[in-house]
Amino acid sequence: MSPGTLPQPAAAPAPRNAEVVLTLEHISKSFGDNHVLRDFSLELHRGENVVVLGKSGSGKSVLVKCMIGLLRPDAGRITVLGQDISTLDHEEMDQLRARLGFLFQSNALYDSMTVRENLVFPLRRQWLADRRDQEADLVQQALEDVGLADTANKLPAELSGGQRKRIALARTLILQPEIILYDEPTTGLDPITAREISALIRQVQQKYNTAAFIISHDMDSVRLVADRVALLAEGGCYAQGTYEELARHEDPRVHDFFT
């Protein structure tokens, strides 16, 4: 698989003093008696990759779906690019989503459309009429960014798992979002492909200065992509710090993830 045309990844410093682009304040979410999130708070800065670690079923995907507005939290406030999303109507939320990218765990590619149509779909939906003449260039650029320039006319079913993940990332990148939410981007991939996807996440951050919120429990990937790691446990932000800081953490609950 081609590694793409972006610069090779390098450890990026955590831009802790950069502008805050996403804030989660005291988020709670329950499904019946199952209290998935309890008083979860976290901030994301521009150009920063934050990984949220947690056991399966700990509420990581629920958290990320609350951020994009697919689920509504029972309590708490989510501010994205300066806007409290609970106050936005459908159209305002759509406009905000143009500045947010979301990479689904399942990729969620439109299986009846070709790769090109998958990429063009969000462009056309976002009223980017002024970009119509640039459509072909934007598709080509997004495909080159993920190293799959020759797959435009293929259907998702004709691609491998890693290629589908890359195309899903290209579909996210085509709107040039300021924040990207990744829901377990390496789950189900072999270790080599998982490493390539992790490198790609880092490359995207460096090239476009995007902030990323990454849900993962793949520690190899976490080490490669994280500027900061937050541990989700008992529904809250149990601990946070750099990968190295948490790896040295004395609390066995934190330490167990790194051994």
């Binding site: 779906k65 697919l70 759509d94 989503r97 689904f104 969620a108 590619l109 439109y110 779909f121 939906r125």
Partner: peptide
């Protein structure tokens, strides 16, 4: 149904499409 269970409907919503 297939679009729902493979999250394609959610993906559509995230793309700014109702």
């Amino acid at each position: 149904g297939s679009m729902r269970v493979t999250e394609q409907i959610d993906a559509m919503e995230v793309s700014g499409t109702n």
